[in-house]
């Protein structure tokens, strides 16, 4: 089955991203396809490659990256909402250049795109599950 996930909360502050990750991992192991994970609201903070937890703690960003959720073209299907991301200082290279900022912080396993990707995930998937506060 094709399953998509929406995550509304950032890492560490809230369990939402941890639960969603465990759910996604179990779904993949069960033979399902994770069509897309869409990060919205503070959930966009899950995509920061500047995240450095203490050594004895999990690295939530890298955990997501290691799941390797991609489409047939090899593009990441860990998708960060552009409007929510720019509000919160999550940038990819093109948004950084466009806005005159000297670096970017998105992890390469994620990509920034529009809210239409969330609606499309709802249309294309058999199930959509929301994790939030």
């Amino acid at each position: 089955m094709k399953i998509s996930i929406q995550i509304n909360e950032g890492p560490y502050q809230h369990q939402a991203s941890d639960t969603a990750y465990q759910f996604a991992k179990a779904a993949i192991e069960r033979g399902h396809e994770i069509f897309r994970v869409f990060f919205y609201h503070d959930g966009v903070n899950n995509a920061s490659r500047f995240t450095i937890p203490p050594q004895d703690d999990r690295n939530i960003v890298n955990q997501w990256a290691e799941l390797g959720i991609k489409n047939a073209n090899g593009e990441p299907e860990l998708v960060v909402c552009v409007a929510a991301a720019l509000r919160r200082g999550i940038l990819d290279e093109s948004e950084a250049i466009k806005n005159g900022i000297d670096c970017n912080n998105i992890h390469p396993a994620f990509r920034i795109s529009g809210l239409g990707q969330l609606i499309e995930a709802g249309i294309q998937s058999d199930r959509l599950v929301v994790f939030g506060d």
């Binding site: 089955m1 399953i3 509304n8 465990q22 759910f23 991992k25 179990a26 779904a27 192991e29 069960r30 399902h32 199930r127 959509l128 599950v129 929301v130 994790f131 939030g132 506060d133």
Partner: peptide, 20 residues
């Protein structure tokens, strides 16, 4: 249920609603 059981519930019960 464990996380696999969570996945199975999502598959078996159709639309899921999160009361966040």
């Amino acid at each position: 249920v464990d996380y696999t059981g969570f996945v199975d519930l999502v598959v078996e019960h159709g639309t899921s609603v999160s009361w966040v």
